[in-house]
Simulated scan of single mutants.
Amino acid sequence: MSFKIPKLTVVGAGPGDIDLITVKAIKVLKTADVVLYDALVNEELLAYINPDAEQIFVGKRRGCYKYQQEQINELIVARAKASGHVVRLKGGDPFIFGRGAEEMEYAASFGLETAVVPGISSSIAVAAYQNIPLTKRGSAESFWVITGTTKDHKISNDIELAAKSNATIVVLMGMSKLPQIVKLFQAEGKNNLPVAIIQRGTTSREKMGIGTVDTIEKIVADNELKNPAIIVLGEVVKHRQAILDIQEQYASTLKE
């Protein structure tokens, strides 16, 4: 058997809809000798993997880790040295709170070649699927994408800074910190700021709640919204309803 160069390619699988994976990502999956995939990866995408490749689930489900991050790092190196090309398949984009950079650094320290295939981030695509633009002329000139929970399991200090701005705020992994997030925005007088929470966005199991800073906690409870979900705060959330209103008005003119 010919020697295979140990290599790691970190691949973004996109936000959930299998059609949102890139062509390049599919090409890479077909060349894999081993694929390590996460819980947020749509398992239908596994059909694109080289049929001779080993597939290993390393994700987190219901608060349980099958592998700790240190074990995943070690597994990447061990499998690459034994089998050749390891593909680390991650939901969304691997460089947006996906720890892809950490895994690449670890692999490189053991002499592995490394590469990355960007993915479509849930921070952008999930909102877009619900007709919520993160920027819109007259409503938002910028947007923040922030992790709701830091590695110390605390709320990110950046959310307090973001609450002072006029930007659209997208919070990932923030559902457990929603009451704290609400209080930060209320402290800035943004009680009526529109908020959307989208669970399992772009998939057939998608659920959503729309309200304001003051009402969103009740809406979450009433709709039983939970992780995985994104939180979008900003005037741009109104765009979704604006589109629906325009479509309804147009339809009514056709009936006249």
Rank of each mutant, 00 (worst) to 15 (best):
S176W: 02
V116S: 14
I230P: 01
G111V: 07
R205K: 15
V11L: 13
Q68A: 08
S252R: 15
E103D: 13
V117P: 05
T203F: 00
V171Y: 02
E160S: 12
M173A: 11
K4N: 08
L8Y: 10
S139D: 13
L36V: 04
A108N: 12
G209E: 12
T22I: 10
G189N: 11
I243A: 06
K154R: 14
M175G: 09
P179E: 06
H85W: 03
G16Q: 04
A82S: 14
V10S: 11
N227S: 14
T150C: 11
R88D: 08
V145L: 02
G100E: 10
K164Y: 00
L112V: 01
S2E: 13
Y48D: 08
Q186A: 01
A39H: 10
T114R: 02
V170L: 01
Q249E: 12
I18W: 08
K4D: 05
E70N: 12
S139C: 07
A242P: 00
F97G: 07
V35A: 04
G111F: 06
W144I: 06
G201R: 01
T149G: 07
A101P: 03
L46G: 00
C64S: 12
G16Y: 01
I18C: 07
V10P: 01
A163E: 07
N131V: 10
A125L: 07
K66N: 10
G189K: 05
Q130A: 06
K154C: 12
G98V: 03
G211M: 13
D158C: 09
S165V: 06
N166K: 14
F57N: 06
T253G: 05
A101Y: 01
E248R: 08
G14I: 01
K190E: 15
I96Q: 01
V86P: 12
L233E: 09
P179T: 10
M208C: 09
E43K: 15
I243Q: 13
I76L: 05
S139T: 09
D214C: 09
E44Q: 02
F3E: 14
A125M: 03
Q130Y: 02
E103I: 00
K226V: 11
D214M: 03
F57Q: 01
L40D: 09
S252N: 13
P118G: 08
A196L: 05
V182T: 15
G201D: 00
N223C: 05
Y129M: 00
Y250A: 14
M175Q: 10
E248C: 01
T147D: 09
I155N: 02
E141V: 06
F97W: 05
E102W: 03
D245K: 14
R88A: 12
P51L: 04
M208H: 04
D19E: 15
N227H: 09
I21W: 03
F57D: 00
K136R: 13
N42S: 10
P179Q: 07
H239D: 06
V237S: 03
M1A: 08
R205A: 14
